[in-house]
Design a protein around this nucleic acid. Structure first.
Lengths: 117, 117
DNA sequence: GACTTGTTCTAGTCCGCATAGAACAGTTAG
DNA sequence: CTAACTGTTCTATGCGGACTAGAACAAGTC
């Protein structure tokens, strides 16, 4: 099973689904151009509602990671490079920790800018 | 005002409050041993319910950052060391990986800015 | 003793999450 | 062309967390 779910997690199911796919792309489990399982199939496999899966997929589309078309399904975009996706994930983790500490966006970008210099 | 709140943020108010204090401790705005504003006062100042502030404070206690005692209020524990150092290290690792991928500083800060939004 | 401050309890409203069912519109396979 | 498949959109419902509200209580301070 490519996508796994923890019903007891505080994270919303749709977020868990998109995160699982994101990670799959990042680590190379899912290749660019590959087709994701149909929303109805995945929903059945996960014991989850169709709309919940669709919502996760649409989040991925909003991020430019996948393409959604009727009849064709969800397809990983060719330019969703694994390395960049991984970096994006690292950024996400960093941002989350920064947010937990209450740092502003300006402060974080400043830290990055400083580190890049 | 030491603690600021954004009512439109998706983040819960109690989490925003604890984050603000956490940040204050992290960057040195709040010294160890210092006393936090009374829950009723802060609630009034923020236009928020007493229980919401208390919940934020109790989260900080659960993390071992502050002590809560009746009559005395909320006090920052002496051993509440700055956690920003760890974050700075994470930033460093991130930047290193980004550089390995050939991304520019602007591209990285943009990714962070986007993720923080 | 009076006052302050956190603690606990009950109760109510509001909103996002998830579910459910149905009809609809491109896409593909036969 | 037809049938099956797939995402899209719509309405509706139940649940739980977040937040508010008021009150009484207990430990500490002055």
């Amino acid at each position: 099973m490519l996508v796994r779910i923890d019903p007891d997690s505080p994270a919303p199911l749709h977020a868990q689904i998109s995160a699982a796919v994101r990670r799959g792309i990042a680590v190379g489990d899912i290749a660019p151009g590959e087709r994701l399982p149909g929303a109805r199939d995945l929903a059945a496999a996960l014991g989850v509602n169709l709309h919940t899966v669709l919502r996760g997929y649409q989040e991925l589309r909003a991020e430019g990671l996948v393409e959604l078309r009727r009849g064709r399904g969800a397809q990983v975009r060719p330019d969703a490079a694994p390395a960049v996706a991984a970096l994006r994930q690292a950024v996400h983790a960093l941002v989350e920790e920064a947010r937990r500490l209450g740092l502003s966006a300006a402060e974080v970008t400043e830290m990055v800018r400083e580190a890049m210099a």
